[in-house]
Simulated assay, not measured.
Amino acid sequence: MPRITIFPLSGAVLYPGLQLPLHIFEPRYRAMISDALARDRRIGMIQPQSPLEGAPLFSVGCVGRIDDVEALDDGCFNIVLEGEQRFRILRELDVTTPFRQVDAELIADDEHEVLAPIERAGFEREARRFADAQGYALDWDQVGRLDDVALINGVSQIAPFDPAAKQALLEASGLSARCELLIQLMQFFGRAGDGDEDGVTLQ
Rank of each mutant, 00 (worst) to 15 (best):
L115W: 01
Y136C: 12
M32V: 05
L175V: 08
L9F: 08
H23E: 09
G195A: 12
L57T: 13
I33E: 03
L175K: 04
E26Q: 08
I107T: 01
I79V: 15
E113K: 02
E113R: 00
Q85A: 15
T96H: 09
M186F: 04
G54R: 08
D74Q: 09
T96E: 08
Q157R: 14
M1W: 12
F188C: 06
I33H: 04
M1A: 12
G144V: 13
M32A: 08
P48M: 03
R86E: 02
D40K: 04
S10H: 12
F58Q: 06
E180Y: 02
E53S: 12
L18M: 12
A104N: 00
F7N: 00
L72V: 09
I43C: 00
A55N: 04
L138E: 12
D132R: 14
V149D: 03
A192R: 13
D139S: 11
Q203A: 06
Q101D: 00
V143S: 02
P117G: 04
E111I: 03
E70Q: 10
V155K: 11
G54V: 03
V143G: 02
F99V: 02
A31H: 07
I79R: 03
H112Y: 03
A133Q: 11
Q142L: 14
D68Y: 13
S59E: 13
Q187Y: 01
I46N: 01
D74A: 10
L138V: 10
P2W: 14
Q49N: 07
L9D: 06
G44Y: 02
V114F: 01
E180V: 09
E113D: 09
F123H: 05
E119Q: 15
G44H: 01
Q49L: 15
L81V: 07
H112S: 08
R28I: 10
T5F: 08
P117S: 10
D67K: 13
G135E: 08
R120A: 05
L185F: 15
A177S: 09
V69F: 06
